[in-house]
């Protein structure tokens, strides 16, 4: 059962990575990169590292996305000014 979960999640993660590279919209790319971090924490849990899984779940899903959004907002605001 566990190998099936790993293969399923791995295919989704690779698809999300390729989508994050090729999306036209930056916001969509950031959300795709967030999906990779979210699913990576399940992989860490299966590999027997709950500490790493907890770190990845809190940083990958929350703070990285938010920091990207803050930077994107500052950049977009400048664009609308001129």
């Amino acid at each position: 059962m566990i190998p099936v979960i790993i293969i399923g999640l791995g295919v989704i993660m690779l698809a999300a990575a390729i989508a994050a590279v090729y999306f036209k919209s930056l916001l969509a790319s950031i959300i795709s990169a967030g999906v990779i971090s979210l699913l990576a924490s399940v992989i860490y849990l299966i590999l027997g590292s709950p500490d790493v899984a907890m770190t990845e779940a809190s940083i990958g899903s929350g703070l990285t996305t938010v920091i990207f959004l803050f930077a994107l907002h500052r950049v977009r605001k400048g664009k609308s000014d001129d």
């Binding site: 709950p50 500490d51 899984a53 907890m54 770190t55 940083i59 929350g62 703070l63």
Partner: peptide, 25 residues
């Protein structure tokens, strides 16, 4: 809870700090 129970359960200072920062966020 996460950073005071770091030696008993998964988690610890780094995870607890990140969770607290998310609360402020």
């Amino acid at each position: 809870y996460i950073f005071t129970h770091g030696h008993l359960t998964p988690g610890g200072g780094f995870q607890g700090g990140v969770v607290i920062a998310s609360g402020f966020l």
